[in-house]
Nucleic acid binder design. Structure first.
Length: 697
DNA sequence: CGTCCTCGAGTTCC
DNA sequence: CTCGAGGACG
């Protein structure tokens, strides 16, 4: 085969570039992808291969030369008169301490004064005001040249387009553009509703919104801005003689604008604020390493309750003269450092997508991930919830994905990174039959969850049913966990709950790694579980839609299993919170012959006591509480029991009807919600005091 | 009939 | 903890 002519190759490369540019425009600008990711990827690979073989074809504007958030062709380049530096990072307390030591050494000064601020997880932006009028807004870009995003930045409501009062003829304000969590969630809900791709996090959403070509779209996205620094004139380094006092009191020239007079970062922030620029309220002026630590700790605790995301805090030497003496190295100033929080997000690869079978037969896709550390633990699995979710987030096997494990414990796959998708990435396909028992998988009309139709034929469902039965909130059989249930079911020793009570020592000892001692312990635990209460018993049966609360309501209403079994659907409807769906599910369970036999067998071996009576104390008269976080001494159950004993109600979600939120350590979203709704927040001591007070009389 | 509230179910790691 | 969905209530 003969080599194609060079002109032909050049033409081919140009065609590929044009096609890719067109698809980029459709994807990033018009939000209307015109090709699948695989097609796009194929084009890109073809171009890369071509350029690799014929380097002379590689052009500076080739899409292959783009890295990450490279400037988009259609946004004008915006050079920075003074480079936008980044900050060096301190990832550990030791590194923060080293920074403080360097500053002390550089200044020959013990315990320097620092200005502490938040490190926003957004985009650095520079705003140029000429005679007080916003003239140009630019992204950081590579530090020396950014992108002109003036039209988009103008849509930020909190940003003054004209600065009042005396201002220098040319003033450049720097700060961060970010999206509040609330607006981010609203945006994603909107994207979801329009079947558009969701954003992985507020920062990506802010970046995407700011780089919109249509400023009308940016306007709808509700961006925010916080100012944190300033460059004067046309970029000459600030040489104004700063007043000796960092607060910048009496000034020789009172006509000079306050921003110009400021002799310290702290005073500058004040001055920016006076100009009507948004300045974040979370800042502090502190002394020495102890002060830096305090600020870091305080903010780390509040991190989750802030309305926007931050990835750390920033420490700056406060005094401008001192800053100048310290100077800059390479691309970062020596007088400032970013103390980062441990990352709560990480990228990793999807090795595969398996499905799990739950107690009710629910089929849940689970991503097997290349192990990655995020939020302090190594994550290797993450639920994908359901089929629709996988499709919506467009997560494929082989994809690189963003995983998050924030204040909450459960890792979540936020999004895939389409740029890093390999050509052989495979989409997830919901299997047609259960991987465990082979029964058909069905998904009801309008339902989100697909289910294995095998019922208790399915070993997976049987195992889950047994685990539920033995669970802490049901019969509470200590030691009967997943491993053991697996063994018992696989060995054919137990196939249904009543079978647990037929176990004996010789049978148990047939199992691997089951000595006499542990077997005896298990039998003792089973024996203890023979005595139970009606509410726990009803809950343990695993009737659909009957959870802990409904089981308790049923127990209280009917008083005995026999009474419940005799109830008609109409009678069931009399029970609080039982409607037609739940009543039917209960009736269906009771009418099934196998279930009846099972319950009969259980009742033959168990002693089921009448349910504990409802709280008699009316002290708290149905006041509604929500618990969140870890309390110092009480467990959550104990706290709930005490509240209920005093006649209060404990529910799981915060709403306007909630009177108190009891928050412990590492409280998450519920605390934030409580603050949002203005609901009283108690700590453990506050709760105990309240109980004491009301219970005492 | 729509809105809000609550419950049930599934889930990760050590 | 978060979702979906059932139930209560206006």
């Amino acid at each position: 085969m003969s080599a194609p002519a060079p002109e032909q190759l050049a033409l081919h490369a140009a065609q590929l570039r044009a096609r890719i540019a067109m698809l980029d425009h459709a994807y990033y600008v018009l939000d209307a992808p015109e090709a699948t990711d695989a097609e796009y990827d194929q084009l890109m690979r073809a171009l890369l291969a071509l350029e690799d073989q014929h380097p002379q074809l590689r052009t500076a504007d080739s899409p292959t030369q783009r890295v990450g958030g490279a400037p988009r062709a259609d946004l004008a380049p915006a050079p920075h008169a003074v480079a936008m530096l980044s900050l060096s990072n301190a990832l550990t307390d030791d590194e923060a301490q080293a920074f403080d030591m360097r500053v002390q050494a550089g200044l020959g000064l013990a315990d320097p004064v620092y200005c502490c601020e938040l490190k926003f997880d957004g985009l650095a932006i520079s705003l140029r005001y000429r005679d007080g009028v916003l003239e140009r807004a630019a992204t950081r870009g590579d530090g020396s040249v950014g992108e002109d995003v003036t039209a988009n930045v103008r849509t930020i409501r909190s940003l003054p387009l004209r600065l009042p009062g005396p201002v220098p003829p040319l003033l450049e304000v720097r700060g961060e553009v970010l999206m509040f969590r609330r607006d981010f969630e609203r945006l994603n809900a909107h994207q979801r509703a329009h079947e558009a791709r969701e954003f992985a996090n507020p920062r990506n959403a802010a970046a995407g919104s700011l780089r919109q070509l249509d400023a009308a779209i940016t306007a709808q996205r509700r961006l925010h801005f916080f100012a944190y620094s300033m460059v004067q004139g046309d970029g000459e380094e600030d040489t104004t003689t700063a007043p000796d006092s960092p607060t910048g009191d009496p000034n020789p020239n009172p006509n000079m604008p306050a921003v110009t007079r400021a002799g310290s970062q702290w005073a500058l922030l004040d001055a920016l604020q006076e100009l009507g620029l948004p300045v974040c309220e979370h800042r502090a002026r502190v002394q020495g390493i102890a002060g830096l630590r305090d600020f870091y700790e305080t903010i780390a605790q509040r991190r989750d309750s802030l309305p926007y995301e931050i990835d750390g805090v920033v420490f700056k030497v406060d005094d401008f003269q001192q800053q100048r003496r310290l100077g800059s190295v390479a691309r970062a100033p020596r007088w400032a450092v970013a103390r980062k929080f441990p990352p709560s997000e990480a990228r990793t690869q999807v090795l595969g997508i398996d499905v799990q079978v739950g107690r009710t037969g629910a089929i849940t896709p689970v991503a097997r991930l290349a192990p990655v550390e995020v939020g302090g633990v190594v994550v290797s699995n993450a639920t994908l919830h359901n089929e629709d979710e996988v499709r919506r987030k467009d997560i494929r096997i082989g994809d690189t994905v963003i995983v998050r494990r924030a204040g909450d414990v459960i890792p979540e796959v936020l999004a895939s990174v389409p740029e890093l998708r390999p050509a052989d990435a495979r989409a997830f396909v919901m299997p047609a039959s259960c991987p465990v028992c082979g029964s058909a998988i069905e998904r009801g009309e309008g339902e989100v969850i697909a289910r294995c139709s095998g019922g208790l034929i399915c070993p997976a469902q049987r195992k889950q049913a047994l685990l539920h039965f033995a669970g802490r909130r049901a019969l509470d059989i200590d030691g009967l966990g997943e491993k053991l249930v697996d063994q018992l079911v696989d060995a054919g020793l137990v196939s249904h709950p009543a079978g647990i009570f037929a176990l004996d020592l010789p049978t148990l000892q047939k199992l691997d790694r089951m000595g006499e001692k542990s077997a005896a312990n298990l039998l003792a635990a089973i024996s203890v579980a023979r005595t139970t209460t009606l509410d726990r018993f009803l809950y343990s049966l695993g009737i659909r839609h009957v959870g802990e609360t409904t089981a308790r309501d049923l127990a209280r209403h009917f008083g005995s299993y026999a009474a419940l079994a005799a109830a008609t659907e109409a009678e069931l409807l009399q029970v609080p919170d039982v409607g037609p769906v739940v009543a039917q599910a209960i009736r269906q369970f009771l009418d099934d012959a196998r279930n009846r036999a099972e319950v009969e067998a259980l009742l033959g071996t168990l002693q089921v006591a009448a349910p504990p009576p409802a709280a008699r104390s009316q002290a708290l008269g149905g006041v509604s509480f929500v618990l969140t976080g870890t309390l110092p001494t009480l467990s959550r159950d104990e706290a709930a029991a005490r509240i209920e004993a005093a006649g209060g109600k404990v529910s799981s979600a915060v709403s306007r009807k909630t009177r108190y939120v009891v928050a412990g350590a590492e409280a998450g979203g519920k605390l934030a919600k409580a603050q949002e709704l203005g609901i009283a927040v108690l700590d453990e001591a506050g709760l105990l005091a309240l109980l004491e007070q009301t219970g005492g009389n």
